[in-house]
Computed example of a mutant assay.
Amino acid sequence: MLLEIYQKSKEHIIKHNEAHLVLITKILLGVFGFVPAFDRYFCSAFRDISKNQMGFRAVNKTSLKFIQDFYQANQQEIDELQQGLFVKDFKGSPTTLNYPKAKIIDMYGFQYGLNMPHKP
Rank of each mutant, 00 (worst) to 15 (best):
H118G: 07
V35W: 02
P120M: 15
H12F: 07
N52H: 08
Y71L: 02
G84I: 06
S50K: 05
H16A: 12
Q72H: 11
L64F: 03
G33N: 06
K88W: 00
Q82I: 06
L29Y: 05
I24E: 13
L85W: 01
G33C: 06
N74T: 02
N74A: 03
K15D: 08
I105K: 06
Y108T: 07
K91P: 00
G113F: 03
F38S: 04
V35F: 03
S93F: 14
D48S: 01
F32A: 09
I105S: 07
I5G: 07
F86K: 01
T62A: 14
S50I: 02
E4P: 00
L81R: 06
V87W: 00
C43P: 04
I24Q: 12
T96P: 04
Q68E: 12
F32Y: 12
E11W: 09
G30V: 08
G55C: 01
E80S: 10
V22F: 07
V22Y: 06
R40Y: 14
D39R: 10
Y99E: 09
F86A: 04
V87H: 01
N52Q: 08
K65Q: 15
K8W: 09
K65E: 15
P117D: 12
S50F: 04
G33H: 06
I105P: 05
P36N: 05
Y41C: 04
K65A: 15
E18L: 09
K91D: 02
A102Y: 14
A37D: 04
F90P: 00
Y112E: 09
F86V: 00
I24N: 13
P117L: 13
Q68L: 10
A102G: 10
G92E: 05
L28N: 05
D106N: 12
T62L: 08
T95I: 00
G55D: 07
Q83H: 02
K88H: 01
Y71F: 11
G109Y: 11
K61D: 15
Q111C: 03
N52A: 07
F90W: 09
K103H: 04
S63E: 10
L29Q: 06
V22N: 15
F66T: 05
N98R: 00
Q53L: 09
T96M: 10
G33L: 07
V31L: 14
I49F: 03
K119P: 03
K8Q: 14
F70R: 04
K10S: 13
G33R: 02
Q75P: 09
P94T: 01
Q111E: 13
R57A: 11
N74C: 06
H12K: 11
S93Y: 14
